[in-house]
Design a protein around this nucleic acid. Structure first.
Lengths: 157, 157
DNA sequence: TTTTTAGTTCTGCAAATTAAGAACCAAAAA
DNA sequence: TTTTTGGTTCTTAATTTGCAGAACTAAAAA
């Protein structure tokens, strides 16, 4: 029988707040709470049933959310010798990775804007000019943000 | 009678692509298409009915989406003397603003992570260390990103 | 071989989102 | 004063999402 993990009121509060934050990023509620739980729980490696009981959710919801999070790289699991259970844990590095990914998205937007510009009539000069400025700004970021990363790497090696 | 605005196939394609992009950012479908339409349309200032006809949506959907977009600052409208209609147009600067806002969000995450750390047991040293690194990274970004903006301003004045 | 464990998969429902259609309304025009 | 214009608001309907519960399964244990 699994020893049930305990969550304090303070922790529950943090789970809600972190959960809302993840949900705003498009994550579904159950998954968001799991991510949050794995951040605040005293024990960092939790089993399927630990999670299910702590968050009071069904097996199906737990299973689906865990597999979704494994797929998106937000969590991982370890196993222990002579133990069939998997121990799920937060893949903390994913937060840094996620930021990096979100930065990459700028080029998708920038490229689409360029496509838009390419087919706009020359007559709407002011509009086209502003749109050009936006794409220039995005391209500037696409250029500068990697440098920020490099600076971080340099300062932390 | 309003002169109906015409949308080419190429423009329709771009509207779909831009629409999907906006939807992925949490914008609802109808609103996303309006934003896209106002970017690709040859005429940049469109009336309620121009939009309704171009995107084939109901008055209610059009009304709700337009008010949502006005509220979130993604579009604006102008009026013309002796004309009761409003002419809606893309607030192009909102794209730049949006990026700036999304950067501000890092401090919300960072602060929450610090709250999490404050109540974590000291025993999970490795985990706490990694979490600390993530918050340090976020704080680094919170510090560096405004500098990137400043650089942009400087290069474009 | 049977049973238990550690999940997964399959309905099916309840709530939330999204948009249509019709009724409505206030200001301007006729 | 009546009508038209340029919308808004209300109700309803169709999807979509998220999750519970039960049935199921493969591997390990007994």
């Amino acid at each position: 029988m699994d020893n049930v993990i305990n969550i304090t009121e303070k922790q529950k509060e943090l789970i809600e707040k972190l959960g809302v934050l993840c949900e705003r990023d498009g994550m579904q509620p159950a998954a968001a709470r799991i991510v949050a739980l794995l951040l605040v729980s005293d024990v960092t490696d939790l089993t399927f049933d630990n999670i299910r009981e702590a968050l009071q959710m069904s097996k199906s919801a737990t299973s689906n959310a865990l597999n979704l999070l494994l797929g998106t790289g937000k969590i991982e699991y370890i196993t222990k010798p002579g133990d069939r259970k998997r121990y799920f844990k937060s893949k903390l590095g994913s937060w840094k990775e996620e930021v990096r990914e979100s930065f990459k998205n700028f080029s998708v937007v920038s490229n689409l804007f360029k496509d838009v510009l390419a087919q706009r009539p020359a007559e709407t000069a002011e509009f086209n000019g502003k749109l050009t400025e936006v794409t220039n700004f995005l391209d500037f970021l696409i250029d500068e943000l990697p440098k920020v990363y490099t600076k971080w790497e340099k300062e932390n090696s």
